[in-house]
Nucleic acid binder design. Structure first.
Length: 734
RNA sequence: GCGCGGUUAGCUCAGUUGGUAGAGCAAUCGCUUUACACGCGAAAGGUCGGGGGUUCGAGCCCCUCACCGCGCACCA
C-alpha cells in the first residue's frame, strides 16, 4: 500500500502540492484541455467571471463562500467535459481604495493634497499591487481552479481601453451628459457619490418649529433655512385657503425681512406638522424637484466643506453643526421659535465608504441618462434594457424572489451619477480647450487640451467585467465580438455568483452595459448568495473585531473542510452563520474519507478489478443505490442545489459506504465468501464517490485518486469524467 | 407607507409536485469490533410561531395575527 496512507490525514501536507500539480497541468485553462484532447473542441461551454475582490485588502470568509460555490460549479462542468472557463481578477474599487490610502497617509501625518495627484497614485499603485498578490495566493489556498493565464484587473490597460471606448459610445449616443443636478456630496470624502452608495442611519434629533410670517414651519436643519423664500402648502388645505398660489408677503426671518412666495402643490402631506413648509432647493432633493417644476430660484447656502456661505450673514464661515444651535438661539431671541421636539427620529444619509454625512448639493457632474431612447437598440431606454431580459427569463435570478426586488429598484431608478472627485480611478475621457469639448478614446491632437479632472464611479468599469475580460478590443465598428475571440466563445457567461447586496451596484450595471454595448445578456443565471455572519449572527466587521482569517482556518482544518462547511445547507440568497464547529465536523469527514480509502486500498492491492466483475445480489443492490444517487445529484447540480448534493454525498459516504458496505466487506473477506464481489464493489464505489465529491472537496479526493489502482491512462481527477453519462441519461459504468 | 424574506429537535439549518417530520453539532447510554476514538453501536429529543380555511390528508396551498430581519420610498 502507498506509504502516504500509513499516516493520518494531514491537509497541510498535501494541499499546496496538489494545487501545484493542477496548475502545472494547465487544465484550468480550457484551451489547454482542448489541446491535450481532454475536452472536445466543439464541447458546450461553461463560463464564470469571478466577482473581482477589492484590491484593497485580503480575502475574508465571505469570499471563500463565494469561491467555494463557484469552484464547485466550475469543477463539475469541467468534469462534464465542457469547455470550462473561470476567469480571475481584482477590482480597483476606486473610492474604497482611495479612502483607504488617504487614511494610511493621515496616519503618517501626510495629506493627500500636499503630496499631489501623481505621488498619491504611486502610493495607491504600490499598495494595490501588494494586495493583489495576497489575494491571488489566497485564492490558490482555497483551491480555486481559476485560469490564471487570463487574469484581469478592472484598472489595467485593456480594461481602461474598454472604459474609454464605452464612455465615448455612450457620449456619442447622448446617453452620457454633463449637467447641474442635485447630487449626494460627501464632505468627508470630498466627492459625489451615487444613490446606491448611501447608507441611512436613524438618529434621534431635535425638530424645531418656527414662526414664518403667518405660518409655522418645521425643520430638523435650521442651518439650511437662510434663503428659504417659498412657502409650500397643499392646494386643498382649507386652513390656508385664503392664500393663493403666487401670492407674495414679507416675513421676518433669521437675518431680517424676506419676501416670500406662496406655492401650492400636492406634494405636501397635510397631516405632517403644520402642513406648511419652506424649501431649500440647493440642499434637498425633493425641494430641487419642486423648484424645477415652478422654475424657482435656487441658492447655495453651504459649501463643499460644510461651512456656511455669506448668505448666512453673521454665521458665514461656521461649520453647520456648530451654527445650528446659535441660529436657533437667534430665532428664539427674535420670538420666532415655537417649539422643539426632542424625540424626532431623523434618517441621515451617510457615505458608505467614508461615513461622511451627505450634503445634497447642486453640482456640475456627469450622468448616464436611463430614460433616453436608444435608436441602435430598438428605441429602448437603458431602464428597459435592464428590465427586459429578467422579465423575459433570459436571465434567471436565484432565488426567484430577488427578481421582484430587482424590478422594484429599476422602477425607482434615476439617472446614474458617474463622476467622482477622487484621484484613483478611470479618468473621464473628455478634454476641454476654451469652450471646446472633446470626448475621445485617445487624447486629442494639438496644444492646450485639458482633461476633465474627475474619475469614474468604480461600478462603471465593473459593469463591463463580463466582456471587458474576454478579449477586448471588441470589433467596435461592427458592434460584434471578433471572430474566434474569448468574447465570442464564452459570452454570455453561464453564471454570475455575487452576494445579493450588490445586485443593484453590480448585477444591474452589468446587464445595462452588456445589453447596451454588445446587445447581449452578460450571464444566464444570477446565483445570489447571502451574507456570512459570525457565530452570533453579527456581521463581520473591523469595529467588532470579529474577523476570522480564512488562511488560519485552512491551516488548521484544511481547505476541503472549510469549503464543505460553506456549501452544505446554505441555499441561494440565504444568510448564514460561520461556526468553526461546522468546519471541525467536515474535517472529521475528510479524515473519514482518508481512512475508508486506506481500508479499500489495503484490501484491493494486487487485485485486478477488470478480470472479474460479477457482483452478488446485495452488492448489486448497493451499486444500484449509488447509481440512483448519482442520477439524483446530477439533476440537483444542474438545478444549483449544491447545498443538498454536498449533504447527500456526505451522508451516503459515511452511512452507506463506510457503515454498511465496508463493514459488510469485512465480513466477506474474513469468511472468504464472495470476496471478489466485495472488492469490486469497494473499488467501484470509491471511484465513483471520489469523482462525485471532487467538486466539493478537491484536494483530498485528488490525493486519494493518485493512489487508486486503476487503468494506466489515469488522468488527474480534476479532468476525469463526472460519473453520469449525459448522452444516455444514466450513470456511467466504472 | 410599499414590497420581500424568516419563524421546524437545546443550537445551526434542510425539507423537491400536499401523503405518518430530517441532517450536522450538542446532550444520554454502551463499546480498545484488526480503515478511522476525528471512531462504532443504541436510545432520546419537535402539538413544524398563533388562529382560521381548503382537502380523505397541510411544515408545504389560501386568509389572518404576532414577532425577527431586509430592501425601497417618505421624512418640511
Amino acid at each position: 500500500m502507498d506509504e502516504r496512507l500509513l499516516k493520518p490525514y494531514d491537509p497541510k501536507e498535501i494541499e499546496d502540492k496538489i494545487y501545484k500539480l493542477w496548475e502545472e497541468s494547465g487544465f484550468f485553462n480550457p484551451d489547454i484541455c482542448i489541446e491535450k484532447g481532454i475536452i472536445k473542441k466543439d464541447a458546450p461551454k461553461f463560463s464564470i467571471v469571478l466577482p473581482p475582490p477589492n484590491a484593497t485588502g485580503v480575502l475574508h470568509l465571505g469570499h471563500v463562500l463565494e469561491d467555494s460555490m463557484q469552484d464547485t460549479m466550475i469543477r463539475y462542468h469541467r468534469m462534464r467535459g465542457e469547455k470550462t472557463l473561470w476567469l480571475p481578477g481584482t477590482d480597483h474599487a476606486a473610492i474604497a481604495t482611495d479612502s483607504k490610502i488617504t487614511k494610511i497617509l493621515e496616519k503618517e501625518g501626510l495629506k493627500k493634497k500636499d503630496i499631489g495627484r501623481e505621488k498619491f497614485l504611486e502610493r495607491v499603485n504600490t499598495f494595490v499591487a501588494d494586495s493583489r498578490k495576497t489575494i491571488v495566493s489566497q485564492l490558490r489556498k482555497v483551491g480555486a481552479s481559476l485560469d490564471w493565464s487570463r487574469e484581469a484587473f478592472t484598472f489595467d490597460e485593456k480594461r481602461n481601453l474598454a472604459v474609454r471606448t464605452v464612455f465615448k459610445k455612450m457620449y456619442d449616443d447622448g446617453l452620457i451628459y454633463r449637467g447641474h443636478r442635485i447630487v449626494n456630496w460627501d464632505p468627508k470624502g470630498q466627492t459625489v457619490i451615487s444613490d446606491d452608495e448611501l447608507v441611512y442611519e436613524e438618529k434621534k434629533s431635535k425638530f424645531y418649529t418656527f414662526k414664518y410670517g403667518p405660518f409655522e414651519i418645521g425643520t430638523a436643519r435650521p442651518e439650511t433655512k437662510f434663503g428659504d423664500k417659498y412657502v409650500v402648502m397643499h392646494p386643498k388645505d382649507e386652513r390656508y385657503s385664503k392664500w393663493k398660489h403666487g401670492d407674495k408677503l414679507t416675513v421676518e426671518w433669521i437675518n431680517g425681512p424676506i419676501e416670500a412666495t406662496i406655492i401650492k402643490d400636492e406634494i405636501i402631506d397635510m397631516e405632517f406638522g403644520t402642513g406648511v413648509m419652506t424649501i431649500t432647493p440647493w440642499h434637498s432633493h425633493e425641494d430641487f424637484v419642486l423648484a424645477e417644476k415652478y422654475k424657482l430660484d435656487k441658492e447655495q447656502i453651504i459649501d463643499k466643506y460644510s461651512k456656511l456661505l455669506p448668505i448666512a450673514g453673521e454665521f458665514a464661515g461656521m461649520k453647520i453643526l456648530d451654527a445650528r444651535e446659535k441660529i436657533v438661539e437667534k430665532l428664539k431671541t427674535k420670538g420666532l421659535l415655537v417649539s422643539i421636539d426632542e424625540n424626532y427620529i431623523n434618517r441621515i444619509a451617510t457615505a458608505e465608504r467614508t461615513g461622511g454625512i451627505i450634503e445634497p448639493q447642486i453640482m456640475l457632474q456627469w450622468f448616464i441618462d436611463v430614460n433616453k431612447k436608444i435608436s441602435s437598440r430598438g428605441n429602448k431606454t437603458l431602464k428597459e434594457l435592464m428590465l427586459e431580459p429578467v422579465r423575459d427569463n433570459k436571465i434567471n435570478i436565484l432565488p426567484d424572489h430577488f427578481e421582484k426586488v430587482y424590478f422594484n429598484w429599476i422602477e425607482n431608478l434615476r439617472d446614474w451619477c458617474i463622476s467622482r472627485q477622487i484621484w484613483y480611478g478611470h479618468r473621464i475621457p473628455v478634454w476641454y480647450k476654451n469652450k471646446e469639448v472633446y470626448c475621445g478614446i485617445e487624447t486629442p491632437e494639438g496644444e492646450g487640451w485639458i482633461q476633465d479632472e474627475d474619475t469614474l464611479d468604480t461600478w462603471f468599469s465593473s459593469g463591463l467585467w463580463t466582456f471587458s475580460t474576454l478579449g477586448w478590443p471588441f470589433d467596435y465598428a461592427h458592434g460584434k465580438p471578433k471572430k474566434g475571440s474569448d468574447l465570442e466563445t464564452y459570452h454570455p457567461t453561464s453564471v454570475i455568483n455575487p452576494g445579493y447586496e450588490i445586485l443593484f451596484f453590480w448585477v444591474a450595471r452589468m446587464i445595462l452595459m452588456s445589453q447596451y454595448l454588445i446587445g447581449e445578456i452578460p450571464f444566464k443565471v444570477v446565483y445570489l448568495h447571502g451574507i456570512l455572519r459570525d457565530a452570533k449572527g453579527q456581521k463581520f466587521s473591523k469595529s467588532l473585531g470579529n474577523g476570522i482569517d480564512p488562511i488560519e482556518v485552512i491551516n488548521e482544518y484544511g481547505a476541503d473542510a472549510l469549503r464543505m462547511s460553506m456549501i452544505v445547507g446554505i441555499g441561494p440568497g440565504a444568510d448564514s452563520k460561520f461556526d468553526i464547529q461546522k468546519v471541525k465536523a467536515y474535517s472529521k469527514f475528510t479524515n473519514k474519507i482518508w481512512n475508508a480509502a486506506r481500508f479499500v486500498l489495503e484490501n484491493t492491492k494486487d487485485f485486478d478489478s477488470t478480470k472479474e466483475t460479477e457482483l452478488d445480489e446485495e452488492d448489486k443492490k448497493s451499486e444500484k443505490e449509488l447509481q440512483n444517487l448519482i442520477t439524483e445529484i446530477t439533476k440537483e447540480m444542474d438545478e444549483y442545489k449544491f447545498y443538498i448534493v454536498a449533504e447527500k454525498l456526505y451522508h451516503y459516504f459515511w452511512h452507506t459506504f463506510a457503515d454498511i458496505i465496508i463493514e459488510r466487506s469485512k465480513k466477506k473477506i474474513l469468511e472468504n465468501k464472495n470476496t471478489i464481489s466485495a472488492r469490486v464493489l469497494l473499488l467501484s464505489q470509491l471511484t465513483t464517490l471520489l469523482k462525485a465529491l471532487h467538486p466539493f472537496i478537491p484536494f483530498i479526493t485528488e490525493e486519494i485518486w493518485s493512489m487508486m489502482p486503476l487503468q494506466k491512462d489515469k488522468k488527474l481527477l480534476l479532468v476525469e469524467k463526472w460519473p453520469f453519462d449525459f448522452a444516455q441519461g444514466k450513470p456511467n459504468d466504472n
